[in-house]
Amino acid sequence: MLSRVAHSLYWMARYIERAENVARILDVNLQLFLEFANRDDDDRHDRWLPIVRATGDLEVFRAHHPRATAASVAEFMVFQQENPNSIVASVCQARENARMVRDQITMETWEELNHLYLFVLSPQARQIWLDSPPDYFNQIKTSSLLLGGLSAATHLRNEGWWFNLAGRFIERADKTSRILDVHGQALPATGLPARLSQADALAWVSVLRSCSAWDAFKSLYGADVHPRHVAEMLMLNENFPRSIRFCVERLDEALRQISGVSDRPFSNEAEKLCGRLAAELRFTSIEEVFNAGLHGQLDQIQLHLNQIGEALFQTYIFHAFETGPETRRVQQEEQQQQQLP
């Protein structure tokens, strides 16, 4: 498979997953914040900022909006094209990547993605958003899930498929860790937190809802919400499809399918880093996580995921994307035809 094509499939999947997760984060938090309608502006500002930070664009946000309010954060994370991670920008990027590899994706996938693209850019999308943000978010989530299902049901299990999967799961692992971190930052730096206020409990439920995990959580832990259980479920659960561990294990599998090497612990840097992260998640207890500090641990995971992404790029893609001054093509210097005096 062409390196460029692999790159595009990987990013197409990442951007779709990103759009979906931004929709998830915003959806539950907008609803949650309805509960805090009586708070003052500063408090609301403080509560919104972590959500912006969760998508990693605080500086871009500050450049465009003086204050974090429900309206400014939503505008920024849904529509603002200058924010490369906004829903609209992500969908456009996903579609742009798909366009570059149209011959590699199925007609069904392309049509659905194109449909999503036409939707987010339509005036009608704005209207739906104004009338009812949850309906808007639903459209995005449904479309992303449909795309996942469509490729699962129609895509040949070839190299392209595994790059697609790698993109989806690396993005999902990263976003789950950031969602968890939104409210994790309110916790003590190390050690297990004390009992929660009702407002804090609601916040943790919103975290679960962001990940479609609330029902699964109740079946596992009951309705009593404790950050320890929430973190355990979203970080370390083996079977929940949005937990970090689950995603990293799928990523690990995808990387091995790509290299085709299964008889050795690892055959390249990406596999090594990913295998190590998967093992850590597998052989860690939630008590250890909290003792070391949840926020720091999540930071580490994000760092590792970045490194895996970088290693994947270096191993399979890089030579197709040589950039920078040392790799520019330049003309050989030529000598003028002359007789020196």
Binding site: L2, S3, Y316, I317
Partner: peptide, 21 residues
């Protein structure tokens, strides 16, 4: 395959494409 210019390169008068393999 559909390729762009930078997917291809030349070595010893033969053309190659850059693939993941």
């Amino acid at each position: 395959e559909i390729v762009e210019g930078h997917d291809l390169f030349v070595r010893e008068e033969h053309v190659f494409m850059r693939t993941t393999k």
